[in-house]
Each structure stands twice: as C-alpha cells, then as structure tokens.
Nucleic acid binder design. Structure first.
Lengths: 107, 107
DNA sequence: GGGAGTGTATGGTTTTCGTCGAACACTCGG
DNA sequence: CCGAGTGTTCGACGAAAACCATACACTCCC
C-alpha cells in the first residue's frame, strides 16, 4: 500500500481557547511583534515564514511562529514547498478587543 | 546637625513614557496579573504591598512592584511604616486603551 | 530605647526562554 | 533522479528572569 507522506499540518489554536496570559506572553517579544506587524501590512496568505525581516535564524523563526499559532494569532497553510501565513485579525480581536491595535500602533 | 533620614521615595514612570513592549512584558506574568487584579478591586491607597494573596516571598514581591511601577501601572506612597498602592487606571488606559480591561476581565 | 512590623537591597540558585547548528523531511524544477 | 529551496526538530548553550534567604533601613508603639 502506497504510503503517501504529507507534511504534518500545523496545529492551530483558536483565540477563544487562549488564556489572556498566553496572549500577552506571545506578544511580549520584539521578534514576534515585528512578525505580527509585517504580517498585518501584507495581504493574507502572501507571506511565507522565511520572508520576514527579523534578525534570527530559521530555527528560532520556526519556534516563534509556533508561539504565535498557540496564541491564536496566526494561521498557516502549506502552499507547495512553503508555508504561508495569515494574521487572524477578526477572531483575535473578538477575543481580545483592542490588543492587536496596541501592537500595530506606530508607538 | 540632625541627619533626618527618610525612606527613598519610590521611582515612578508615567505610562506615556512606557513602550508597548514594556507594558506587555509587565503584564505577562501570573503574579503581577494577580496583583493588578486585587489592586483593581480595592479602593485607591488602601492596599499595602504585603497585603496581597500571592505565593511568593517579600523580596520577590518587592521586585514585582518595581516592575509594575516601571510599566506605569502602579503608583506608590509611603504611609507610616507601609507603602500603599494605587492602580493608575486612567493614565494607563489613556496610553494603552483596552489593555487593562483585558487583564481585569473574569476570563 | 527596644522590639515588632514592613519594605528594600544584595547575592546566589534555579528555571525559563531565545538562540544556534546540524540533521531531517518535504516540494519542486531541471 | 538529483539538487536547491523551505521549514521543522533536536540538543546544547547562554542570557534573562523569577525566586529565596539574609541582611539592612525605616516607622511606629510600648
């Protein structure tokens, strides 16, 4: 029987299941804030993980996306060889009103 | 000459001078969240530092209050032998709209 | 003035977290 | 089928942060 291997689909967590502490912890990091900001300024599903301007290697980058997924901030989908992202604006805003706006603000 | 020693007044930081990352970092801790919540459910200037129900020693507690002060979340005043606290609701809300509400929510 | 109560400061331990290098898995184009 | 491109996983490392015990400083009351 043909063992058709697929890449393991990314594990997603809906914002509704995320505790406040988890959301705050996820956003309390300069690299992840930058990821969220760049993601917010791009159309959905247009940014692959490796396309962000952050000063870390790809191992750390992969880790950060895992944290963002676990906090319900990012949704991912496999598109050929790369994994494209989408910021979960509405869902996250519904769960944590105003929080995303604070992070996206020019400051 | 009488050397009238006074306790060093606590150093305060106004929320307007606080970066978003600092505010989020301050709130991304279970002990500090509990401090903020208890503080919010008490009248101003009624709670001394030692009167909070958190599972840490007083050294760690003092440290946490320092973090909250640096994030513009708490104001302190010396009242006799104890240091009483006040949550800077309005000022913090003006700087980071909605953030305090998220933390104070029943969740 | 002595002693209890309260909070800060210091030094050191433990834990957590961000990071990297290397190895591995998958996709796609030549 | 091979190689380049992309992303995850693993183990290890170092830095940061939380914590404690102790010592110290100040205030008040007896």
């Amino acid at each position: 029987m043909a063992n058709t291997h697929h890449r393991a689909a990314p594990v997603h967590v809906h914002p509704d299941e995320v505790p406040v502490l988890t959301a705050l912890t996820a956003l309390a990091d300069p690299v992840r804030i930058e990821l969220v900001r760049e993601l917010a300024s791009s159309p959905d599903w247009t940014r692959a993980c490796g396309s962000f301007d952050v000063p870390v290697g790809k191992a750390a980058l992969s880790h950060h996306f895992g944290v963002l997924r676990s906090a319900g901030l990012v949704e991912q989908r496999d598109e050929g060889p790369r994994r494209v992202n989408r910021l979960r604006r509405e869902e996250f805003e519904a769960r944590f009103p105003g929080l995303l706006a604070l992070v996206l603000r020019p400051d």
